[in-house]
Design a protein around this nucleic acid. Structure first.
Lengths: 335, 335
DNA sequence: CTCGGCCGTGATATCGTCAACATTGGAGGG
DNA sequence: CCCTCCAATGTTGACGATATCACGGCCGAG
C-alpha cells in the first residue's frame, strides 16, 4: 500500500461518475440529492477513503469548526474538569477544541492566538476577571465566559456560587455553629466574591456576626497558611467552630493545618469546601462540600457559543450541598 | 469603525505598493527581502491589522500548525499537568493544541477526529496501552506517546518510573522498614507496571520478601479501598509498616483509610506516593512522594513530534524522591 | 396543449496563500 | 565596455471546497 496523497472530492467525483458539487452535497447532507446517487457517492467516498479537507472548507466558508478554550491554569482541578466537559460537548457537536493558556502576555495574548487560529468562538474558563478591563473581543468572536461578572459583551454561564455557599453556611448554622469563618478565594475572582457573599448574607440574615475572613489563592498551600492563621488563636473567648472554605483544594490545606495543630475535624472544627472534586470524598476526613456541575457548565458554555446565545445572557447552574464527614455539631467543651 | 472583512495579503500588498508574494515573504521571514521593503510591508500589515489566514496557508502547504493531544481523562491530576505543559510548549513554538478525548469509541475514534482535523502530529498522554493493539497511525501522523511501552511506530517519552519507585522503596528500607507493600495502578498501564517493578526489584535486591501487592485505578477512591484492605489485618505476625503507592491520589485514599482505622501515619505506617502533585505537600500528613517533571515531559513530547524524533526513539526523564512527613522509621512496639 | 416551476445535477468562480518560474536592474569580472 | 550572475521582486497557477448560477426534464395547472 503505497502512501498516496489523500483523496479529494475530485477523486471521489470521478469514481462515482458525478461532479464534485454533487460530492459536496452528499458530504454536507444536502437533501437535494437523489438517493441512488447518494448511495453511489457514499460508496465511492468509502472506497477512496475520502475525508473532507477542513482547511479547504474553512477557506471557502470562513468557518473552521474549532472553538477555543481560554484557561489560566490546569492545576486547579475545577478548571480541568470544566475543560474536559467542554471538550466532550464540543466533540459531540463535531467541533475541535483548541486550548490557549493565559500566560505572561495576559488574556489578550491568548485571544490573539485564538483569533490567529481562526476559531469560530471561544470559551473562557474561570478566572477571567482580568478580561474585564481589556477591550478585545471585536465582535468577530463569539464568546462564552464561565464565572465572570455580567457583561453584555459575552454570554455568561455560572454556578450558583452564592446560593451554594449559603447552603453550606446554613448547614453549619443548623448544626449549631455560631462562629463561622470564611476562607475566600482571590479578590480578583468573581466566583470567590459570590461565595463570600453567600456566606456573609446567610449569617447576617440569621442575626449572626460573620466570623473571620481570610483569603487564599485557590491552591492547597494557601489554604494551609490561611488555616494556620485562622486556628492560631482558637483559645479566644469566642472561638471559631466552623469554616466555609471557597474551594476543596484550600480546604485540604485547612485540614492539614488543623491536624498539625492537634485540632480534630469535625469534633473541634467543621470544614466545608466547594467544588466536590473527585478526591474530596477521600480527604481525611471526607469533605462536606458544595458540588459544581462541571459537566453541565461545560455543556452550556459550548451551547452558548455554538448556538449563538445573546451577549449579555446568563445561565446559572445550581450547586447542591454534599454532606460528608468534615462537618458536625460543635463540640461542647466540658466545663 | 465598521466591521470590515479581514485584511488579506492583497490588501497589504496594495497598501505597501508591492506584490502579494513579497508580503508572503515578509510574513514568513524570508531573507530575500530588502530591509527597506520589509519595513514598509510590516507597516502596511500593522495598519491593515493583517494576520495570516491559517486555513488558506494550510490548504496551500499541507501543514496546519496544530498538534493534537489525546487524553483519556483530565480528572487524573497528572494528565492535566502534562496537558498544560504540552500546551505551553506548543504555544511557544507557534502551534495550537487540539484536545481529543478517548471516549467510548476508543483511541481509534480520537485519532479519527484528529486526522479529520488535519493535525500535523499528535501527543498521546498516558494510559494509551489500549493503543498497542490497534493498528492506526498510518504513517501520515507524527506521534509521540508518553508513558507507553517501547514501540517503533512512535517516539516515546517517559518518566523513570522504575527508578523513581526504586528510590522510594530504598528510602523506606533505609528507614528500617522490612515489610513494604505496594498499591499499584491498573494492569493495563505501562507506568503502573514499571513502578511495580521498581518496588519489587529493590526489595528482592535487598534480600527482602516483597510485601502485599494491591491494585487500584489511579483515583483516590480506589486507593481508599486498597488501603482498607491492606490495613485490615495489621495485627498479623509480620505486619506491613510501609507502603509504596503508585500515585498521589491513591495515596490520599490510603491516608484516609489509615485515619479511619486509627492507624497513625507515619508512626505506624509510612506512605510514599508518586507524582508530587501540587496538593501532595498539603495532604495530612504532607506526602513523601516521587516527583514527575511534567513540564519536561510535555516539552520533550512536543519536541519529539515537531522536531521529528524517530519512531522507536525513547527519552527518559528522571524522577527525584521528595521526602516529607508521611514516611519515618518504623515504630517499635514496646514489648 | 402550453407554460411555469421544481428537482437533480453540473459548470464556474472564487476563498487567501505560497511554490515555481519569470523578470528586472545593477554589480563585478574579463 | 559588455556579459554574467545574483539579489529583489513580480506573475501565474494550483491547493480543495462550496456559493451561485445555469440547465434539462418532468409535472401539474390553466
Amino acid at each position: 500500500m503505497t502512501q498516496q496523497r489523500r483523496a479529494s472530492m475530485a477523486d471521489v467525483a470521478e469514481l462515482a461518475g458525478v461532479s464534485t458539487q454533487t460530492v459536496s452535497r452528499v458530504a454536507n447532507g444536502s437533501p437535494r440529492v437523489d438517493p441512488v446517487t447518494r448511495t453511489r457517492v457514499e460508496a465511492a467516498m468509502a472506497q477512496a477513503g475520502y475525508r473532507v479537507h477542513r482547511a479547504a472548507r474553512a477557506l471557502r466558508t470562513g468557518r473552521t469548526g474549532v472553538v477555543g478554550a481560554v484557561v489560566s491554569t490546569l492545576a486547579t482541578v475545577g478548571n480541568s474538569m470544566l475543560l474536559e466537559a467542554v471538550v466532550d460537548e464540543a466533540s459531540a457537536r463535531g467541533y475541535a477544541v483548541a486550548v490557549a493558556r493565559i500566560g505572561e502576555g495576559g488574556p489578550a495574548e491568548a485571544f490573539e492566538r485564538l483569533r490567529d487560529q481562526g476559531v469560530d468562538g471561544a470559551i473562557v474558563v474561570n478566572e477571567a476577571s482580568a478580561l474585564l478591563r481589556q477591550s478585545e473581543l471585536p465582535t468577530d468572536l463569539r464568546l462564552a465566559v464561565v464565572d465572570s461578572p455580567p457583561d453584555d459583551r459575552y454570554a455568561g454561564v455560572e454556578t450558583a456560587h452564592a446560593a451554594g455557599s449559603a447552603a453550606a453556611t446554613a448547614h453549619l448554622r443548623e448544626l449549631g455553629h455560631r462562629v463561622i469563618a470564611h476562607i475566600a478565594g482571590p479578590e480578583s475572582s468573581y466566583a470567590a466574591a459570590e461565595r463570600e457573599r453567600g456566606w456573609r448574607e446567610t449569617l447576617v440574615a440569621a442575626g449572626l456576626q460573620p466570623g473571620a475572613l481570610l483569603r487564599g489563592a485557590w491552591d492547597s498551600a494557601s489554604g494551609y497558611r490561611a488555616g494556620l492563621e485562622l486556628l492560631a488563636n482558637l483559645d479566644a473567648s469566642d472561638p471559631v467552630t466552623a469554616v466555609v472554605v471557597a474551594n476543596d483544594q484550600m480546604a485540604l490545606g485547612v485540614l492539614r493545618a488543623a491536624s498539625e495543630l492537634g485540632i480534630l475535624v469535625p469534633e473541634q472544627l467543621s470544614v466545608v469546601g466547594f467544588d466536590d472534586v473527585a478526591d474530596a470524598a477521600n480527604f481525611t476526613p471526607a469533605l462536606t462540600t458544595v458540588r459544581q456541575r462541571f459537566d453541565l457548565l461545560g455543556q452550556r458554555a459550548v451551547a452558548a457559543v455554538l448556538d449563538g446565545a445573546e451577549a449579555g445572557s446568563r445561565e446559572v447552574i445550581d450547586a447542591p450541598l454534599v454532606v460528608r464527614g468534615s462537618s458536625a455539631a460543635p463540640f461542647v467543651q466540658p466545663a
